[in-house]
Design a protein around this nucleic acid. Sequence first.
DNA 1: CAAAGTACCTTGACAGGCGAGGTATCTTAT
DNA 2: ATAAGATACCTCGCCTGTCAAGGTACTTTG
Lengths: 112, 112
Amino acid sequence: MSIAGDLIRGHTDAIILARLLRSDSYGYEINKTISSLSGGRFELKEATLYTSFKRLEETGCIVSYWGGSGPGARRRYYSITPTGRQTCRCLLEEWRETKDIMDKLLETEEET
Amino acid sequence: MSIAGDLIRGHTDAIILARLLRSDSYGYEINKTISSLSGGRFELKEATLYTSFKRLEETGCIVSYWGGSGPGARRRYYSITPTGRQTCRCLLEEWRETKDIMDKLLETEEET
DNA sequence: CAAAGTACCTTGACAGGCGAGGTATCTTAT
DNA sequence: ATAAGATACCTCGCCTGTCAAGGTACTTTG
């Protein structure tokens, strides 16, 4: 079973920043990575991905530059900025909070 | 810090069904319960709540009936149906999946 | 009687996700 | 040569869920 985008909605930016925190990368690759990390259960649609890039660039969380092409077409690489690191930290914390709250709200009673 | 609704987006129905799985309830009460269970960190807006009720009723997950008023205005109670129980089970499973995937995607590397 | 709490509901705007469509480059097989 | 397929980027417009704002109505309390 795969996961609908709406369940992830609002966390897209966090996912991308978390990826860029590890190393610079470009759209196509980030997409593949996400797909593979999730075991094929989740995949960011391209339109969503580029929307997010634009948003993150506008808010100064990432910067981009055209990089070596390798095999295939030219690539636009993205790099996380100090602002982006800060934002990422916040978003990760928010995710922890979200999890915590959701788990409490979804508790039915099968647990002790 | 409180959690924005957009981070929960897509899980609203699950939250409500999980509440109704415990016992019949009505809008106002469910809202209070959610707010208190989350320690005041999250609260469903009324408009969102009633939108969800409508959706769930249309899909046969819940049924409603006018119940005893108690103190205050008349109340519309909601009751979960067998379909709703089934749906709830699916949504809980989806939440577990979502958590699992998100945790993998957000991993930076500060862990061992 | 007025105010505050309980309780319900609708409308319209907004934002993010995404289907569909488009461009350009490079490799490989025919 | 050329066609196909992978790599790689981007935009437009629709859809759906959230929510601010506004409204109704009843009950209790000061």
